[in-house]
Design a protein around this nucleic acid. Structure first.
Lengths: 189, 189
DNA sequence: ATAGTTTTACTAAACGGTCAGTAAAATTCT
DNA sequence: AGAATTTTACTGACCGTTTAGTAAAACTAT
């Protein structure tokens, strides 16, 4: 901890930007180094491999997203408002932190690959976030806010996928409204 | 040893499988060659570059999808049923042709990249399909089947994104139902 | 001095792509 | 018809470049 306190963070930030733009396989370690304004070998001083660097970037991003989503939600006491706020927060995060958005969109597809278990950890971290969302939906179902026929995991997927498609907040607001109308109970139930 | 007949198609099929599994940058031409059981140089006999090969694969896949979607739809005369059938067909295609599904999911993210115009053609081909879907929604709006507040482009995006998230037909059915409830007009409007 | 950083210099393997050449099939010439 | 020529389908060896990763020297702060 002599000279630089934030070198490691600087590398993570640069890596995230690069991975978000071109995807894991589209970026070389030299590119990341250039973006971070350090020499490539220095990255290997802090991270043992490209794969490990990516995992750290992913984990860091998911922490950020999860914090952003649930900190605001927990201030709410009504489940209807909790869920409503979650959707708003999600849109807010996705339109502002577009790097995180893209890195999720890009690498989520690899979860279904069976030949490489290097993605297992990455998948697990994502799934733990999805579970928190589906739990919230499940609780809302019990309190008769959300239609009981709805599978909470599928609903969480729809939120996660539907609300990351665009960078335009207005489009995402429109999409959110459609999803919301599909989720909440009909008045004449 | 002249084989000739379907070599080109065999390469496209192998390329699609490989691209779907690992993404454009995750696959080498040698891998594709191995998958197609031909020599790498032969790929360059039929296709001038990796990029061009990918575009052909993409175009071929989009043609397949579009044909599958709209052939069935056009037999229907009511717009409500047309749209309903389109969603069904889309799920059907995505759960059976998982290679196409993954290749779309993987490479769609590149559409927002501004630094490379090599993706322009790829994007254009995808957008023409999206337009056909949003046109169908727009017409359904005029006939007061679909809520008039809904933006047809955003609705098309929601369908395209929400209904490609999984390979499990049951999950996709659930998601379709949520989307559908969000789209159609309320009885007590 | 010494422990923590950063850089220089390097490697082996893999990459996209090229090229000269070849055997067989199709076409043209006589 | 059959010989001569051209075109098609395909191969292996190879090119320059880039890749992830390493060893060790050099610098920096205490």
């Amino acid at each position: 901890m002599r000279k630089k306190i934030n070198t490691k963070q600087k590398i993570i930030e640069a890596a995230r930007k690069s991975f978000a733009e071109k995807g894991y396989n589209g970026v070389s370690m030299s590119e990341i180094a250039k973006e971070a304004k350090v020499k490539k070998a220095l990255i290997y001083y802090y991270f043992p491999s490209k794969e490990e660097l990516f995992y750290k970037v992913w984990h860091y991003s998911m922490d950020e997203l999860e914090t952003h989503l649930f900190n605001e939600v927990e201030n709410e006491n009504m489940y209807l408002k909790k869920l409503k706020k979650l959707l708003k927060s999600y849109i807010n995060f996705m339109t502002n932190k577009t790097e995180v958005q893209r890195i999720i969109l890009r690498e989520r597809v690899n979860f279904s690959r069976t030949d490489q278990d290097s993605w297992e950890r990455v998948k697990d971290r994502y799934m733990s976030l999805r579970k928190r969302i589906s739990n919230l939906i499940e609780e809302s179902k019990n309190l008769e806010v959300i239609d009981s026929n709805i599978d909470s995991n599928d609903a969480a997927d729809l939120i996660l996928n539907g609300l990351s498609s665009s960078n335009d907040p207005r489009s995402l607001e429109n999409i959110r409204e459609i999803i919301w109308r599909g989720l909440v109970k009909n008045e004449e139930n």
